[in-house]
Design a protein around this nucleic acid. Structure first.
Length: 411
RNA sequence: GGACGGGUGGGUGAGUGGCUAAAACCAGCAGACUGUAAAUCUGCCGCUCCUUGCGAGCUACGGAGGUUCGAAUCCUCCCCCGUCCA
């Protein structure tokens, strides 16, 4: 009962899809699929599988999501696959050790929060959401054995993750070998035409394609996106490295973090996290190079753009203004988290810092003060025995380190 | 099942009886410099207490016991990982 759809010319589609992509395997095949789709008026099924291993998505995840959205923009079917089953195995990709499998409860909770976040990018109405427990959870031992028979151990061990662990005498659990095979069954079940993933997923995606053919289906085309480098400018953005920007983070946090990336890294963020065209980005680059545009200005524009994407234009502008005021003009932040404490005896600053969460321990708080990282109402405190007068109502602005502010209200 | 090697702080990894809260490096934090950049430099980097001192106490080298004035270091048992043989 599908109505025949109209699609943009294939070359136009390809150009749009190619933007920012690392690799298309094989490109002629994708092109053929697009042509076929245009001819029959049938949208392609493009999918992205994500394991809900953490409660929140970060910008790194959005790189591929954006690409999936591009398929959606072109009228194809975007399938967002939640790997609720596979998450319990854990993807061995890029991992140097077996990780503990997640429990059903953790996975479910994560899956719920994922979806809400995903809709900040994908069109809620047009997205097909699937869970791989739908089919993987129902597989019989027999079916699993059959699935496994379609792949060879030597091929499996070709992959870098396993190879290097083997070489370094690190453990590899057998269930990890199952990961690419079970997720391949996703591709089989979904009848996908295209699968998206980060470059590090290439091995998995290729296995998926192969297994599809083993099951008598046309192999899907593969489209990989570059890895987004994290805030440290070195490693991929990842929660476990702590170098990430979560998409649910407050605009101000996001802004600060984005501004802390290096000028060099900024360009890859432009490339992978905005919809600016290649041409526009090149022009910006050129303006910075020739001194027409200050790099900081370019970075603020980037931060503003990204935040507006997730939180709306007003939030983007507000974050930018706030940043200007606090860090460039060194004024008090517009709003800081507030903490109320009752009136009473004078309190040790050290104790207050710990209580309010500005420092994790007294030792740490003491260190912070000694190193000149603590200010009360703009005045640096050097005395670790400093006390705060709590005898009458007052409000103080505490600053601990570069970024932590807190408004202390004595009631 | 047998033989052998290994498990140290967030990570890598030194340390084989006291000089070790544990080298070095990385990460992290603070300060300086700046554009809250990056790079660089300086310092810090288990916890608690105070008389804030090159101070005191507590906790820490897979787990549990033991030897010793004293153990990450020696012994016993256990757990975990790897290699080779079967």
């Amino acid at each position: 009962m599908k109505t025949k759809r109209e699609f943009a010319p294939v070359d136009e589609q390809l150009a749009y899809l190619r933007k920012g992509v690392a690799e298309i395997i094989p490109e002629p095949e994708l092109k053929a699929k697009l042509e076929q789709s245009a001819k029959t008026g049938t949208p392609l099924r493009a999918y992205l599988g994500v394991d809900p291993t953490a409660p929140d998505l970060h910008l790194g995840h959005t790189v591929v999501l954006r690409k999936l959205k591009h398929f959606q923009d072109l009228g194809h079917t975007a399938v967002f696959l939640i790997g609720d089953f596979s998450a319990m195995i854990g993807d061995p990709t890029g991992v140097s050790e077996t990780r503990p499998p997640l429990t059903r409860e953790q996975v479910d909770a994560n899956a719920r929060t994922y979806l809400e976040q995903v809709y900040k990018i994908l069109d809620r109405e047009k997205t097909e959401v699937r869970y791989n427990s739908e089919w993987l959870g129902k597989m019989s031992a027999e079916e699993i054995v059959r699935l496994c028979s379609h792949y060879r151990l030597a091929r499996m061990l070709e992959r870098e993750d396993f190879r290097s662990r083997l070489d370094r005498n690190l453990p590899i659990s057998v269930h990890e070998l199952l990961y690419p095979l079970l997720t391949a069954y996703d591709a089989v079940s979904l009848h996908s035409d295209v699968e998206l993933g980060a470059t590090e997923q290439k091995f998995n995606l290729l296995v998926h394609r192969e297994i599809q053919r083993e099951y008598g289906l046309p192999g899907q085309a593969i489209l990989t996106m570059p890895i987004l480098v994290g805030l440290d400018g070195q490693r991929k953005m990842s929660k476990s490295y702590g170098n990430y920007i979560g998409i649910t983070e407050a605009p101000r946090e996001m802004f600060g973090k984005l501004m802390s990336i290096s000028d060099e890294l900024m360009w890859s963020y432009y490339e992978l996290l905005t919809d600016f065209t290649e041409r526009v980005i090149l022009r910006l680059k050129d303006e910075v190079r020739t001194g027409v545009l200050h790099p900081m200005e370019a970075k603020m524009q980037l931060a503003h753009y990204i935040i507006a994407n997730f939180h709306g234009e007003d939030a983007g502008r507000a974050a930018r203004d706030e940043f200007q005021r606090v860090f460039r003009e060194r004024q008090a932040p517009d709003e800081a988290p507030e903490r109320r404490i009752p009136r009473g005896e004078p309190r040790r600053l050290v104790a207050v810092l710990v209580e309010t969460g500005l420092a994790p321990s007294r030792s740490e708080a003491e260190r912070l003060i000694k190193q000149g990282g603590v200010e009360i109402d703009g005045a640096r405190i050097a005395d670790i025995k400093q006390e705060i007068d709590c005898s009458q109502p007052a409000t103080h602005l505490l600053r601990a380190g570069k970024k932590k502010f807190l408004r202390l209200v004595i009631e």
